[in-house]
């Protein structure tokens, strides 16, 4: 529906999809105690935490060991009035980029994330 991260502020396309959702397999959701529509934060292997929470969609369309989200959301620019803070950005979690020594192609799928069920910023303030 959207083209990369560029169209998320377009009124018509924002109407179609205004945020991305994190696809989680029902079995994984059961283990974590996550419900459909619940907001979670994501943390990757380098302790990078997503700036915004993302809603979970519990679905059979995703495998047990992976989660999926549409690319292009979680904008931090406030002037993007419609898309600011909607959904989470996958690119900020991609901190580990592998490069193919022969071709120079990049592999970004070597990143691992975990769920944070509470607001990480709040927890920091409290502690």
């Amino acid at each position: 529906m959207h083209t990369f991260s560029r169209t998320t502020n377009n009124p018509n396309l924002d109407d179609l999809m205004d945020e991305n959702k994190l696809w989680v397999n029902p079995r994984v959701a059961e283990i974590w105690g996550i419900e459909n529509g619940q907001k979670v934060w994501l943390k990757n292997q380098d302790d990078v935490v997503s700036s915004f929470p993302i809603k979970v969609r519990v679905t059979e369309r995703i495998r047990w060991d992976s989660v999926y989200m549409v690319h292009g959301f979680g904008h931090k620019e406030k002037r993007l009035s419609r898309s600011y803070g909607k959904g989470a950005s996958d690119s900020e979690l991609v901190t580990h980029v592998m490069t193919d020594p022969v071709m120079g192609g990049t592999g970004m799928r070597g990143n691992f994330v975990t769920f944070l069920l509470g607001n990480p910023k709040k927890e920091e303030v409290e502690s």
Partner: peptide, 11 residues
Amino acid sequence: NVSGSYPNVEI
């Protein structure tokens, strides 16, 4: 409409 369970899913 999603039915079935991974990996046998029909959409």
